[in-house]
Nucleic acid binder design. Structure first.
Lengths: 146, 146
DNA sequence: TTTGATTAGTTGTATAAACAACTATATGCA
DNA sequence: TGCATATAGTTGTTTATACAACTAATCAAA
C-alpha cells in the first residue's frame, strides 16, 4: 500500500534510467570533444577487451549484456575503425576471438580518464557511503531481473 | 585517491545503466506479452500525456529528456498507431499540441499496472529506506549533469 | 557413425537516439 | 514597419537495439 504508492511516484525515473542516460551523454560529449571518434557502446566493448584480450563475441554478449546481433554490428564498426580484429579460433571454427589493434589498445588510458572524470562530476556532492549503497541496490535490481 | 579507486571499480555499471536497462527490458517484455504493441519509449511519452493533456512537442522534449527529432518521430509512430493526435495550437502556429485518442487513454491503467509490477519485481528484497536513498542519489547525479 | 539438438555468429527489419541542416512562425528592437 | 534573432518542428544520416530467421560448426546419444 504505502510501498505501492511510493513506487508509483518513483516509476518514471527508475524505468527511464535518467541518471545513467545523463552519465552516458556526458561521457559521449567528452569523447567527442577529445576528437575520439567512438561511441559509448563501442567504448563498453573495448572496456572488456582491455581487461581481457581475445574474448569471443558470445563472451562480449555476456559481458556487455547485449544480444548477438548487437555485438556482431558493434564489432563490425570497431573493425571498420581499425580498433579490433576478428581472429577465427583454432579449436572451434564457429568462434571469433576479438583482439585489440594497437590503435584500440592506445585508447584505454585516455578514455578511462574521461570516464573517471565523468563519474567524478556525476557523483560530486554524493558521500561515498551513499554511492556504495546505491551501487548495491542497482546490483540487486539487476540480479532480480536477470 | 581512495575515492578514485572506488569509482574505477564502479565505472562500468554506472555508465552503462545496467539496472535501468534490465528494468526497461522487463517492462517491454510484459507489454509484448500483454499484446500491447508499444515500445517503452512510446510509453514514456504517453506517461506524461496521461498526467497532462495537450502538451507541445517541446514540452514533451523537456519532460522525457529527449531532443526534438526524437520526439517528432515518437509522435509520428504514436499517431500511426492512433494513440495520439497532433493539434495545431490556435495561438501559435509553430506549435503542435499532442492529445491522446480514446485508444491512447485506455492504455493508462493496464500499462501502469505492468510498470508497477516490474518495479515490484526489480525492488523486491530491497528495503524502502534504501530505495529512497538510491532514488535521491540518482536525482543528484541527474542534477549534477544537467 | 549418423542424426538431432545445441552453440556461435550473421542478416533482415523495425524502432530509437544524436547531430546537423533545414522551414516556418513569432518576437523584439531600431 | 522592418529586419535580425529566437523558437517549434521536420528531415537526413549514422549508429545502436530487439527480435526473428538463418547458416555453419560442434556435440551427444542412439
Amino acid at each position: 500500500m504505502h510501498n505501492n504508492q511510493f513506487r508509483k511516484g518513483e516509476l518514471y525515473s527508475f524505468i527511464t534510467g535518467m541518471a545513467s542516460t545523463a552519465i552516458a551523454r556526458r561521457l559521449q560529449k567528452k569523447l567527442n570533444q577529445a576528437g575520439l571518434n567512438i561511441t559509448i557502446e563501442q567504448w563498453s566493448v573495448l572496456y572488456h577487451l582491455w581487461k581481457k584480450h581475445g574474448l569471443s563475441q558470445q563472451e562480449l554478449c555476456n559481458a556487455t549484456f547485449r544480444d548477438k546481433p548487437s555485438i556482431t554490428r558493434l564489432v563490425d564498426n570497431l573493425e571498420k575503425q581499425n580498433l579490433v580484429k576478428r581472429v577465427p579460433s583454432q579449436s572451434d571454427r564457429r568462434i571469433n576471438l576479438i583482439y585489440l589493434t594497437k590503435h584500440g589498445q592506445k585508447l584505454e588510458e585516455q578514455t578511462m580518464r574521461l570516464a573517471d572524470q565523468t563519474l567524478t562530476e556525476a557523483l560530486k556532492t554524493v558521500p561515498a557511503s551513499k554511492i556504495e549503497m546505491c551501487k548495491e541496490v542497482l546490483q540487486v535490481v539487476y540480479d532480480n531481473l536477470t
